[in-house]
Every structure is written in C-alpha cells, then in structure tokens.
Simulated assay, not measured.
Amino acid sequence: MWLLDGDFGCVVPCRWFFAFRFRSRVCLFLLATWVMLMSAASSQPPALKTKERATTRRELSTKNQEPGRQEPFRPKPDEFAPLERAHRYRGELVFVDRANRRGSLRIDGAGRFRFAGPSPFALLPYAVVRYHGAPADLRDIPLGTVLHVWAFLPPEPRISSVPVLPANNRTKKLGYAGTGTAPAENHVLLMEDEVSYCRRTKQTWRLKEIDVSNNQGSIVAARLPRESSQGQSIAEDVTMTFDAATRIWRGREFLNVQDLIDEGIWPASGKKIANGQAVQLGIVWKPTPSGVFTRFHISDIWLDEPAMLRAARRQTETHRTFMRSRWIPARVDRLEYGEFGSAKVTAT
C-alpha cells in the first residue's frame, strides 16, 4: 500500500509512515522520563547529596582494610623522614641513573633470587649513600654490589619518578621470586654496602671454614657483633664464594688468594678451620657453580682495621673531590636580601 506525502510531493510505502510514527512516540516517552528523573534529582537537598557521596567514598576506601589497621607511613615532602619508620631490604645493584639519582635493585626476598626482577628506586633529596664505610655517590658503587636499603613510600605519588605500587605490594608473591621482591617503598633514605652496614652497626664477619680449590672456593662465615666471641654465636652461618679475582687487604698490602696460599695461611687445596677470624667482607652477586643462584660472592676481604681505615679514607677523598666540583645538594630554608645585591641564604 502506498501513501501520498503532501509535504514532499512524493509517494512512500505505507509501512514507512507507521514506522516513523512509532519511533516518534518512543522518543517522546524517553524524553518525558528523563525530565522526570532530573526534576526528582534537583529537588534533593545539596547537603544530603554531598553526604551520600562522602559516605560512598569512605566505604570504598575502607572496604579492604582490616579493623584497627593503621595507614602505612608516608614521609612529608618538607620534612626529614625518621630512619626507624623505613622499610629495610637488601638487593643487588643492577642499574644506575646517577644524574637523576635513580636506579634498580634485584631484591633478595623469600623466594629464589635468580627469579627476582629489577625494582626501580629513587633517592630522596636528603638520602645518604655509603660505600666502604664512607660517604659516596651512586656513581661510586659498581654494578653487582649487594646493598642494604632503608626506604619509604613516595612522598608525593603524583610526581614520583619511579613506579608507584600498592602499599602492600611487598606481601604479594611474585612467582618463584617469592614475597618482598617488589616493595612499594622505593624512595630511599639510606643505602650502604655490606662494609658500611657492618661498621655502622658495629658488626664483623667471623670466618669459620675455608674451602680452596684451584685459587677459588667458598667461605663459611657468620655476621656477629664486634665484641662477641665465637662461642656466643647465634647468627646463621652463610656460605659465600670467592675466586682469584677477590681482593684481599692487609694493612697497606694488596693481596690475592695465591699470596695467602704461599704464606701458608690458606691451604692450596682442601678445607681449613678459620677459628672465627674477624674480617670485613665486600659482597656482590655473580653466577655460582653447581646451579646455586642464591649464594653471594666475596669481592673484597679486609683482614684488619688499618686496611679498612685506608679503604674508608680513599672513598672519603673520592667523595670530597666530587663534592668540590659538583657541590652539595641542599634545601633552601630562607633567603634574606641585603643592600647592593647581597643576600643571606639559610640552607639545610
């Protein structure tokens, strides 16, 4: 059936006319419904709507929180963070962006170390870096060095230079790497190598057994307080490897494994009981024999205190030279202008 359209002067099928009328009625119905809903929403008091939105946000923010659980500590941008509130972990330095004071660590967690991926970190403006028991910069620390780290959540997550992770990320298990290998606390307050950590906390490594084969082998040792005796040892014994490239320092002497073998201090082959000799160790990571990937490697051995003091003195002079040419980072607290272009700056 066909109908004549008077407006356009043409003949159209009848089903087109009825379809147009049906769609027009549907549109009018939807428009009327929308107007009624908007009228009802506008009649609600603004204070009630604000209260409902606040309640909804509060419910969402506390949905996954346990009763009585405190919020994680996050340092304020304009204050020095306390060391005792920091999260501590240890890992291998695998990447350094020294110009921007950033880098990455492979963190030693509760799983297999070889499966741990790099975790980015950034130094806080007032962060302290120590190497060989002396102040240092990131450029002074070789890649592969095992570092002790104390870090916080990002003070300002919106402008963080490294990824911002969930606050409980350190409790999540990441495959075979286990837990603790990707903490959200990636803004570092203190970073130091093994020697710096032991000297700051007044600890030493006590050698218990040495196993030598072809100028390489392993050492069994335990980290103990400096004043304690071997009989008071409650620390767990740790097995670490060494090789012909391991540097040995004694007083002003620079030795290697073969020198100690020639002097009869270490055996040419086989095991020897070390009787708790107190030393300081520089620890790094490298692939170890027999498929053991969680065993750390000894890069340096300091046999006495004079040797350790010389190493600290060398690093101190290195850092001083760097500071003289690059200056020291500081925060400007107050600026007082005087006459004829002079000014007084108070900085921290």
Rank of each mutant, 00 (worst) to 15 (best):
A312H: 15
G103A: 04
R313Y: 11
R53S: 02
S229F: 07
K271C: 00
F322C: 05
L335I: 12
E185W: 04
R252E: 09
E66D: 09
S342C: 15
S160A: 13
G231W: 13
L30Y: 02
E263N: 05
R313I: 09
K49D: 10
P82E: 03
P155N: 10
E185P: 09
H319P: 10
S42Y: 00
C27I: 07
Q230N: 13
Q216G: 10
I328H: 12
D193M: 08
A40Y: 12
M38C: 15
R106L: 10
D97C: 08
V162R: 09
S213G: 13
I261K: 12
D108H: 14
G91Q: 13
R25P: 05
E236D: 07
L207K: 04
C14T: 03
G231L: 10
R226L: 11
E253I: 07
A235D: 01
G264N: 09
I234Q: 12
G231I: 07
P225D: 02
R314E: 15
F293Y: 06
T50D: 00
K63H: 01
P142A: 11
W34M: 15
E263P: 05
A167P: 13
D262Q: 02
D193I: 08
R206G: 05
P166S: 03
S61L: 03
A278M: 02
K49M: 10
I261P: 14
N64M: 01
V212H: 14
F18S: 10
D78V: 06
S39N: 11
A184Y: 12
L48D: 08
A347G: 03
D211Y: 00
N214T: 10
V284F: 06
F8Q: 12
A99S: 13
A110T: 15
G111M: 13
L153N: 08
P157R: 03
A32R: 00
L189C: 04
L189P: 03
P75G: 06
L260E: 14
M323L: 06
R58F: 15
G276N: 15
L255W: 05
R139H: 09
G133S: 11
T62W: 00
Y176L: 06
A222R: 08
R88G: 02
T246D: 03
R199I: 07
L83H: 05
K173V: 11
A110C: 14
T181F: 03
L153P: 05
F20L: 05
R200N: 06
F95A: 08
N100S: 02
V188S: 08
A184P: 13
S269V: 02
V284A: 14
A221Q: 03
